[in-house]
């Protein structure tokens, strides 16, 4: 009886009808999220290191300040200080056409640009915006993680003759990484959810699929509740994975 009532109110048939749309949306959401986590982490590491770059002697000293620290600081400040939604719109409608434009693209022009923009424009802009945004946040996680490592660790490593980069690789980053896992996990979860914003420029991911279904039937509970559940399950899965990683890399930690 209850089941019938439930299904009477919740039109599951709509979800079934559009199952493939949700499925493809889910795939797109996962694809975008994974790409942006990987790229954002790499970018975040680079920017985080750039913000910490220091050298003792000229001209490397000035180079670090003007070519690395200043630009990276401005970059982080901009991408953390403006809404991601605005960044997505800016990149899609203003930046991308500069580079990929049928008439005079800096990177690609002509017929190829037309096709590229039509078929992959939203994807490219969305991934670019989300990566740049994630890179800014992740760079702060890296910076804080690296700075939290005791100076004595670096001194011990350098006194053994390890270069700066070897010290980073063998001593600092492995320890920092462990401390960075919880905030990195939070960031991955935020990224997964923020990917829904890309639907605004027409990328066919989960939120877009829900909007399409909602538009077709003027029904809102079914599609949005469905994707909410899907997002929720994915974030739960991510949180579980992060917890496993933390347990695995917790060796030798002072407890």
């Amino acid at each position: 009886m209850e089941a019938i009532l439930w299904f009477g109110w919740f039109r599951a048939d709509i979800i079934v009808e559009y199952a493939m749309l949700f499925w493809h949306g889910l795939q797109m959401t996962v694809t975008v999220t994974v790409i942006c986590i990987v790229q954002g982490t790499a970018l975040g590491l680079a920017i985080g290191l750039a913000r910490l770059a220091e050298a003792r002697h000229a001209p490397a000293r000035q180079l670090c300040q003007y070519a690395l620290r200043w630009p990276s600081t401005i970059y982080v400040s901009f991408f953390r200080g403006t809404p991601l939604f605005v960044q997505i719109l800016l990149i899609h409608f203003a930046v991308l056409p500069l580079f990929i434009n049928p008439s005079d693209g800096l990177l690609v022009s002509g017929e190829l640009a037309r096709n590229l923009k039509q078929n992959y424009g939203a994807f490219l802009s969305g991934v670019l915006a989300l990566t740049l945004n994630a890179g800014a946040y992740i760079s702060e996680i890296f910076r804080a993680g690296i700075q939290s490592i005791d100076r004595g660790q670096i001194e011990a490593s350098r006194s053994l003759g390890l270069s700066f980069s070897r010290t980073m690789y063998h001593v600092v980053l492995p320890q920092a990484f462990r401390r960075m896992l919880p905030p990195l996990g939070n960031n991955a979860i935020a990224l997964l959810k923020d990917s829904s914003l890309i639907s605004a420029i027409g990328l066919a991911e989960l939120a877009y699929a829900a909007r399409t279904v909602a538009g077709a039937y003027s029904r809102y509970w079914e599609p949005y509740l469905t994707i909410s559940l899907m997002y929720w399950l994915m974030t739960l899965g991510l949180a579980y994975g992060i917890k496993k990683l933390e347990a695995r890399y917790g060796r030798g930690d002072t407890r």
Binding site: D150, G152, Q153, E155, A156, Q175, R178, R251, G252, T254
Partner: peptide
């Protein structure tokens, strides 16, 4: 060093 500075990991 005074504080040993062994690599804890």
């Amino acid at each position: 060093f005074q504080r040993f500075n062994l690599f804890p990991h």
